[in-house]
Design a protein around this nucleic acid. Structure first.
Lengths: 351, 351
DNA sequence: GATTAGCACTCAAACCTTCCGAGTGCTAAC
DNA sequence: GTTAGCACTCGGAAGGTTTGAGTGCTAATC
């Protein structure tokens, strides 16, 4: 099948209309909609071609046509005209995010929430990937005779704490020594480079105290892992219930699927591999549950390094024209704010 | 209307059947179900009485009867025979919870999750109320030239951290001094007793450094508030979608309602005021959205003090006989485990 | 007085049938 | 290549009928 101008216009009009109404689109409606003056019969002929090429399908003989996944793909890649955000929109997003951005985690949470409510779909974000940030500070403190609190600070300004309990009573000098050993080995080491073998190594150098203080090292390892993992955050799932596309059963299966964070993390992982905006049409993926859904994702970066994902999940007929620019702008804004946070820290760095 | 034995049995049978099937219950079905040999006509007469007294209602003339909220209330208070948990059940719950209980927050999260999946309803919990725990330790550490990390430890073993940023460069001696001042004023003070006036007081004693270090005190105050507030946790909302009682619309409005944590917190607050198990039938409350739902809550306590809430949310016709003992046992188990944690800490207390 | 058999009555839900019209595919003419 | 025209299809709405579960009432029975 050849793509001439008219054919493109017709497909664009069909997809636009279907996105708006969710109803099959008929030839009569299209003749009205198109600027070119053609009869419905001509349109029908074109539609027959498009259908033959797999871009349209009929729910039943006497109904209009519904765009298929390939049609959406073609629409997104070639036909769609993206809305552009007004300066006011940008302003709003910027100031709101900046107001709420006291920590990276908090920032992502808010960004996710706002993106979800402003689009009416569900938003996914991951917190910035911390695997390449280095350990800036490690503190051990006794908080009772057997209990130790640990505080970990990374050079991206993330703080995490954890406590652990020793079998025997803590001796202060020993604890200091342990802290010193851990620092010697791990200070300025990227989180992703901390592995169990290293931990074992440190334990080995500790001699007879090793056994007593192994819970501390276990806690340290746990804390590092926890800090390194980027968390997947999902907000606005309930927005999806608003969309008529999600009949009770579909909604249930989609929500259940989304509730399994590992699955979601997997998918985002895939998306993270490629640069820039990515749109996954559910029916193109192998996940049954994503059937009629679609996922827009993009990366946000802090100072050049790819750092995290931000995206939207909605019905396949979601309003790409307005959703895409929003996702893109949020990614930009979040990246900018995180970079600023980081720069602030960098500027403060002690020499 | 008088309550004789037969009438009670009939109402019990109706509620039982309705809980099981969700369908209106007819006289014929009941005659089969009852051990007493009576004709359907007799049962009908009884049902007419019950209906007149407001315990039953008919969806339409030619249908069976549905128990009303007062009927459920009466059933719960007088008719129901609670299931009892097997030793195996208890064993399972105990060991699973104990295995996962490294912190109070984590424990409550897991308890909530397990309660939800084991009942098929949604579970709500609050983390233990920390308002009466005292501040055991406050640490301030510089993490860059302008940034301070703060760690707060309470005597119930909760750790929280936060960082803040100063306008000017940190001077170590000053920071130590600030830490000392905060400790002097707030160490061993219950979280609920820390108020803005106290903070102001400390600032006043700081003289010219006050302005520079006010972010630290603000962070401290924020951290105390954050630690004091018990968090509301909701799990298994999606379980509710399984229940046929929640037709699309109902489900949407209920889930939306539950997503507003403040509302939920409010309701649990109410429940927390009374001792022991409490069952709120949605239609008895003023919240529209709870219409056909029902909430079972109870308190868990750690060492005598009421400390938090654990509960279940489900359709009004939920399986009280099995749900109630579960909620009660979870509350007991959680209380026990938390007490143990606390005792461990207490035993470790440094003199 | 309580219980019961019997029966007329009610009404939602299931099932048909019919009708309508949106939309198609095809053909023949332009 | 385009279009007018027309027969055809088929889902869905509208209306009618049937079915049967379940009731309420009455009169007979215990």
């Amino acid at each position: 099948m050849q793509w001439n101008e008219r054919r493109r216009k017709i497909l664009a009009a069909i997809v636009d209309a279907y996105i708006e109404t969710g109803e099959p689109v008929g030839s009569k409606f299209l003749t009205d909609k198109l600027d070119e003056e053609v009869s419905s019969a001509t349109v029908r002929n074109e539609m027959a071609e498009l259908a033959a090429a797999g871009y349209l399908e009929q729910p039943h003989t006497s109904a209009g046509r519904i765009p298929t996944a390939p049609a959406f793909r073609f629409y997104i890649d070639n036909l769609m005209k993206q809305d552009s955000l007004t300066d006011e929109d940008r302003e709003n997003i910027d100031s709101t995010l900046r107001r709420l951005s006291d920590s990276p985690d908090r920032l992502m949470e808010e960004a996710s929430r706002i993106l979800a409510t402003s689009t009416g779909y569900a938003a996914v974000t991951t917190t910035p990937d911390q695997r390449s940030s280095a350990i800036r500070r490690i503190e051990l403190m006794p908080i009772s005779s057997h209990k130790v609190a640990m505080l970990l600070v990374t050079d991206s300004g993330v703080l995490r704490n954890r406590s652990c309990r020793l079998q025997e009573e803590i001796r202060l000098e020993e604890l200091d020594q342990v802290a010193q050993l851990i620092r010697m080995r791990f200070l300025n080491v990227p989180l992703s480079h901390v592995c169990l073998a290293d931990i074992q190594e440190v334990l080995d150098t500790m001699g007879k105290a090793a056994e007593r203080y192994s819970p501390v090292l276990a806690a340290f390892y746990g804390l590092v892992q926890e800090s390194a993992d980027s968390e997947v955050l999902l907000t606005g799932q309930l927005n999806l219930l608003q969309h008529p596309d999600y009949a009770p059963e579909r909604a249930k299966s989609l929500l259940t699927f989304l509730a399994q964070r590992e699955q979601l993390a997997d998918m985002l992982q895939q998306s993270a591999s490629s640069e820039g905006l990515r749109i996954l049409l559910g029916s193109e993926s192998d996940k049954q549950e994503l059937g009629d859904s679609s996922i827009i994702t993009t990366q946000y970066t802090t100072g050049g390094l790819a750092r995290g994902t931000i995206g939207l999940i909605g019905p396949m007929r979601m309003d790409y024209a307005s959703a895409i620019p929003k996702v893109e702008y949020f990614a930009k804004a979040v990246g900018r704010i995180l970079s600023d946070m980081l720069d602030e820290d960098k500027g403060d760095e002690q020499s």
